[in-house]
């Protein structure tokens, strides 16, 4: 008897960026072992620390919090994830440069879904409720 093929099969039609393989178990970008020197060109995925709706700006008319190419200092707000009518500001934990914004504005993100591609980052983003 062969095993049923039970790869993760995301069914959220509105989350096209979802990877077809199981993601890392933690939000921390552990793809790069700390012992290995990180080449400067390496990108790291910044993942959603919670499930909710992703917003790039505090309101529809406002400027986006961050843009591709921005160099981000720790503590800077990257985006908002709305859950239970609460706007949760997601802050950067350490310095890095944004190379891609993967999540789509005003669309849902799951826990662990990639939001940003980042360079020179060693820690995950964290969430703060406002």
């Amino acid at each position: 008897m062969s095993a049923p093929q039970l790869q993760a099969m995301p069914q959220l039609g509105y989350a096209p960026q979802m990877p077809a393989v199981p993601q890392m178990q933690q939000a921390a970008p552990a793809t790069v072992p700390e012992s290995r020197p990180t080449p400067p060109t390496n990108t790291v995925e910044i993942k959603a620390p919670m499930v909710g709706t992703f917003y790039r700006a505090p309101s529809p008319d406002a400027e986006s919090y961050v843009r591709v190419g921005d160099v981000i200092e720790p503590g800077r707000v990257l985006c908002i994830i709305e859950a239970m009518k609460l706007m949760n500001e997601i802050e950067a934990e350490i310095k890095g440069r944004i190379v891609d914004i993967v999540a789509e504005n005003a669309l849902p993100v799951e826990f662990g879904q990639v939001m940003f591609q980042w360079t020179n980052v060693h820690k995950s983003s964290r969430c703060q409720s406002r």
Binding site: P10, Q11, L12, Q25, Q26, A27, M50, V51, G52, T53, E82, A83, M84, L86, P108, E110, F111, G112, Q113
Partner: peptide
């Protein structure tokens, strides 16, 4: 299930016991 949503890391307190994560999952689906 017809749809599925990842709501958090393994500890129950941050996933299956988190009203916030579960309500958010209901909202987005």
């Amino acid at each position: 299930a017809d749809e599925s949503v990842c709501i958090g890391p393994p500890p129950g307190s941050q996933s299956y016991l988190s009203p916030k994560a579960i309500i958010a999952a209901a909202e987005i689906t």
